[in-house]
Amino acid sequence: MTQPLTSAERETLLLEMVEQLLIGKTTPGAVLKKLRREVLGMNQTEYAALASISRRTLSDIETDKGSPSLALLNRAFRPFGLTVGLLPRSPALRKRLLKRDQSS
């Protein structure tokens, strides 16, 4: 069994995953799955109860199936202090947005 992450390690992982999402190297479902496992160390049943969604719905989100509503996605990501927002569809524009933010 691995040691729990420190607060700094959790924050670093969270920021890395969000950055990977912004540059198009991962999906929202993959981010949720990784955070659920590595930050909280929970299985799907435990996390679904925490997020007030069904285990099946959580599974669908984590495998990027279906078209969940924004409200549902927000509920799924809320335990990590994340919210779903508007981003450009173009990976190139998302990269520019990220670079712009880093230069501020």
Rank of each mutant, 00 (worst) to 15 (best):
Y47A: 06
A30S: 15
K25L: 15
Q44K: 07
L40H: 14
N43T: 05
S90C: 09
Q44T: 02
E16Q: 14
T6N: 07
R75Q: 14
L98N: 07
S90G: 10
S67W: 01
D101C: 03
L58Q: 03
R55F: 01
P28E: 08
D101S: 10
Y47L: 06
T63A: 05
L50R: 15
D60H: 07
K34L: 13
L73C: 08
D64W: 05
Q20K: 15
L72T: 15
L35C: 09
G81P: 00
V18L: 13
P68E: 01
R89M: 12
L22Y: 09
P88G: 13
T63L: 06
D64V: 03
M42K: 09
K99T: 13
E19A: 14
P79M: 07
T12M: 05
L97R: 07
E19L: 11
L5I: 11
A8K: 06
K33N: 13
A48S: 12
S52E: 15
L82D: 03
L50Q: 15
L14G: 02
K33S: 12
E19Y: 10
A76R: 00
Y47M: 03
K99S: 15
G24M: 13
D60I: 00
T12E: 12
K99V: 14
P88E: 15
E19V: 10
L50N: 12
G66R: 03
R36Q: 11
I61K: 00
A30V: 05
E9V: 12
I61V: 07
K99N: 13
V18Y: 04
P4G: 05
K33Y: 13
I53E: 07
L93V: 10
S7P: 01
G29K: 00
R10Q: 14
E62Q: 07
E19D: 15
K25A: 14
E19M: 10
R96F: 14
L5G: 05
Q20C: 13
L50Y: 13
P4I: 04
R100M: 10
T12S: 09
F77Q: 02
T63E: 06
S67N: 12
L98H: 12
V39C: 09
G41R: 06
P68N: 01
A51Q: 01
A48M: 04
T63Y: 06
F80Y: 14
V84T: 13
L21S: 06
A30P: 00
A92Q: 14
A49V: 07
G24N: 13
D101W: 08
S104N: 13
D64I: 08
D101L: 10
R55A: 07
L70E: 08
A92Y: 08
T27S: 14
L14I: 11
R55W: 03
L32K: 00
N74V: 02
G81I: 08
D60F: 01
L87K: 11
I61L: 04
L32H: 01
M17D: 05
E16L: 10
S7R: 07
P79R: 14
L15P: 01
L5P: 01
T57G: 01
A48Q: 03
L13F: 05
L35Y: 02
G81L: 07
F80P: 02
R56W: 04
P79F: 05
Q3N: 07
Q20N: 15
L40N: 12
V18C: 11
L82H: 04
L15M: 08
R55D: 04
